[in-house]
Amino acid sequence: MTKTPVISARNLDKFYGEFHALKNLSIDVAEGERVVICGPSGSGKSTLIRCFNALEYHQSGQLIVDGIEVYEGSNEIIRLRQNVGMVFQQFNLFPHLTVLENLMIGPLKVRRVSKADAEATARRYLDRVHIPDQADKYPRQLSGGQQQRVAIARSLCMESKIILFDEPTSALDPEMINEVLDVMVELAEDGMTMVCVTHEMGFARKIADRMVFMDDGEIVEVADPETFFTAPRSERCRDFLEKVLHH
């Protein structure tokens, strides 16, 4: 990697009570890079990316995201989150707002852009996730796949530099997974910096610059997709791939 990292994690440790969720973990993500993190459940993948936008805080080590050091009590967290979008497994759209309002509320209230600009941006991104005609509906009127695409558009509307995906397709019915993945592939092709936690290995293979395998709070293996899928070095990674790929 020659580019400067936009996410730089050094020796992160995190505990939930006695449970050691992240163990002395280090990783860099470069600008424009697409990193896919996989691993068995409980391995700390979600915890790691939730640390990246300060939804969780690590307890020791150093984490710098987009030039801002992340620590509990920092008064730059709000600025950090404006540049780091997140897409959740459960979509977490705001149910009392229409699709358009869901997309506009961040730019309006946080970035304080004008209403006309916010709406133009919102419509542009709705177009980009292929649901321009759902603008005035409420989230509960949409299918899961559509809701997740709205959630992606909501992140895009904040003009984030980095988008974190926390198992974006795990809560979807199988027939809706591809419509969400397609949007993510398009994003990747446009050069967005992405960190995805996902079990969709076909997708990972298509877009990842780097694959990361985590287990038990540690990064076990980092490799380019080709090597990762054809010649994984560690036993644990081979076991895991065996299970996910043959399903």
């Binding site: 989150r81 959740f88 459960q90 759209l93 209230k109 904040m158």
Partner: peptide, 18 residues
């Protein structure tokens, strides 16, 4: 109110008050 609503609000950069 579900926890996810908090997280979504915070993740688009809202302050606690917002």
């Amino acid at each position: 109110t579900p926890k996810g609503q908090w997280e979504a609000a915070r993740s688009i950069g809202m302050t606690r008050g917002q």
